[in-house]
Amino acid sequence: MDYTIIQKYLQGKASNEEKEQLFNWLDESTSNKDEYIEIKKIWALTSREENVEGKTWSDIEPSELKPAKTKTLQHWLARAAVFLLLISCGAIGGRIISKIVETPVYSQMYSVISPAGQMTNIELPDGTLVMLNSGTKIQYSGDFTDGNRQVYLEGEAFFDVQKDVEHPFIVKSELLGVKVYGTSFNIQAYPEDRAFTATLIEGSIGILNTSGEEVTKLVPGEKAYFEESETNIDIRKVDTAMYTSWKEGLVTFRNERLEDIAKQIERWYNVEIVIQKEGLGDERYFGTILKNKPIDQILEVLKLTTSLEYEIVPRANEPSLIYWK
């Protein structure tokens, strides 16, 4: 390779034609690429850009920043309250992305919260698409971009993971985790449910215990279910559409207890449900619900096949209270 071209390129003087030549040469072999990378590293480390504006430290010194001494979760949560930025409100069903970006420490932590009553779509820095269901929080650290593709999930999310064989994508939650290389799957792990459900749509995922060891693998169409009180992970073939239909605003209940359904409704609509009638919580419901409908329509549907009666009590500055009786 003619070094004049490399030099011109480094000095920002190469024409498009010369750039093409350089890139073609890089494609020819790994050793060419390595050679260029070494040169570029030397170039970058010996670079200086004249401070023509005469910037001084006083120009950029932050006025009130205090050194961050602790990096505990409480610390993040405290900051989270202050620096919650609402970035965008979608038109459909009011999606809200809340992003906490204020992080004056070395390794940044990012978290995205999809509040109760909302669904949120995000794209992680590696191109992985994540759809967060209501009342869900996902966290990842600033070195995510350095190949540490690890997220911590509280709640339910659908993942479409960008393929990267070198860097496994890991989802951790309180009970279990999963490890993948590029696939799409759904995970439900709301802390209050004390249970974990992973449903695989395509690809392959490994289920991890809390120490990060792989305990089993799923093939497409399988669902792994684990309850904190149990010792075994239950794996079975399922109709995956039932577990991912929430993405389309459809929710399918499979003979679920009204008490569990109530928990989900609380998350979607940001309401508080109090079950008053004895035994009502144990009644079961089977059917599909359109999540985007007003809550009274949903409750009417539940009423059709259960003994449910309800009363909605709106409250100012607080989630509405709904009595099931």
């Binding site: 170039w43 850009e49 910037k55 932050p62 004056p104």
Partner: peptide, 26 residues
């Protein structure tokens, strides 16, 4: 260093200045 990777000079300066702010905080 930043200018070697970020074509936008102003952005490169911003990033460099942020590095000093981070150093200050830590």
């Amino acid at each position: 260093f930043c200018c070697q990777f970020i074509p936008d000079r102003e952005e490169a300066k911003n990033i460099a200045q942020q590095a000093f702010v981070k150093l200050w905080t830590n």
